[in-house]
Nucleic acid binder design. Sequence first.
DNA 1: CGACGGGACGC
DNA 2: CGACGGGACGC
Length: 465
Amino acid sequence: MEDAFRPSTDLDDPPNSRLFLVTSKSITEEIIREQFATFGEIQDVWVVKDKQTKESKGVSFVKFAKSSEACAAMEEMHGKCLVEGTKPIKVFIAQARSSGSHRDVEDEELTRIFVMIPKTFTEDDLKDTFKTYGDIEYCIVVKNKSTGESKGLGYVRYHKPSHAATAIENCDKTYRAILAEPRNKTPAPDNEYFSAPRTDHVMGDQGMNPYPQFADSGNYTRGDLRGTDIITRCLMVSTRASITQEQVYSLFDLVPGLDYCEMQQDSYGFSTGNAMIRYNNLGSAVYAKNKLDGFEYPPGNRLVVAHIDDGEDRRSPLGRMAMQLVAAQMMSIVCNPGAAQLRKTSTGYPSPAVPQMPRVQTDVALPPLQKLAPSDSRVKERLFVVFKPVPLPMDVLEDVFCRFGSLIEVFLVPGRNVGYMKYAERKSADDAMASLHGQTINGIKMKVMLADPPKEESHKRQRTY
DNA sequence: CGACGGGACGC
DNA sequence: CGACGGGACGC
């Protein structure tokens, strides 16, 4: 039946999560389990044995849940003696079963990642972004040879496979980090680059504005925003400083009734400096706007807060009543800072210790989360989704649309209020459509329809979508 | 040198 | 009404 979609556990999924061990024949599965357990979630240990004699062939496979776990185990355990008196073991990342190759996988192939980055990114930006996952040997931004402008692509070489794997696993998905294909096989591992003296420690955080698109956008003033007189539960927060969604959340959660906060991201996944806030009542929104518009957070950075049209509530008299009620609650908090459980965050700004807010709020009865289908799955069906008034964030969409199974990817059309959901199984798409069409998620209304086939430009091969 | 088993979906 | 993203390194 063609390539039936397998949620199977066997494959080398994720890639490079399986180890190939060469050990003394006396080493058992139990010994291996015991010694490798500290590196992560072991999914399988298999000691290869002779079919007749049942004796170990001195070869084993250890499957971890994550590549970073397998890599860390390899780095730590290679050359160790698992049992006193036995020969030191060899540990490699196993070749994918499908590859058929038995060549050793070299660190060279496991330490360099390839990423998509904003065209404004310098190599230092790249380094600053990815050094949190491990020691970087070097960074390269791919540039146009003649003009020198960035192509929005970069390479990061780490010293250790586990660092590259951790970066791929944990960096923002919009970087689309993958292992870089090894460059033309030049078997000259001449890595004697100790050239430039370290200039690593960056002085302050002020030196670099990660959002250059805001460098010259400071001349809109608060008076001339159209619609400042509308009253809604939704607010738009604009900031020129790089503050996180968590910080915005903590700040606006000082006003009771916050039920949604999301920093908007551009198509690269970088903060746009705008966050959408929604309260469960008009009064809280009005109060938060009045208190926080123009508030300096962090000191020196004036936030701009304005109501935005959420398509429902408008200048309701109820809003003013609710506002007064909430104002009374606020007074007690403002006058008793101790009651607000202020603490220092990692950034040093005071913020309340608040429980995590559920990311998705809706009346729809959602099935449990399901794993995404592998990104190289065949697309069997696509949904076309229209949002009103603005698109939901990618992570929310993934959270919601994955619950019907086999979701491969969410794609939002840049600059429009529409997007596509790709599924590996038709039934998943159908189920999602049946459950979600016409529904409201986080205050955003959605139409969910089958997508028309993409405009066909030629009679050639089918696009990969 | 040192490379690929076992088990059996679920309405 | 509201429609279609995307990737490779001067050695």
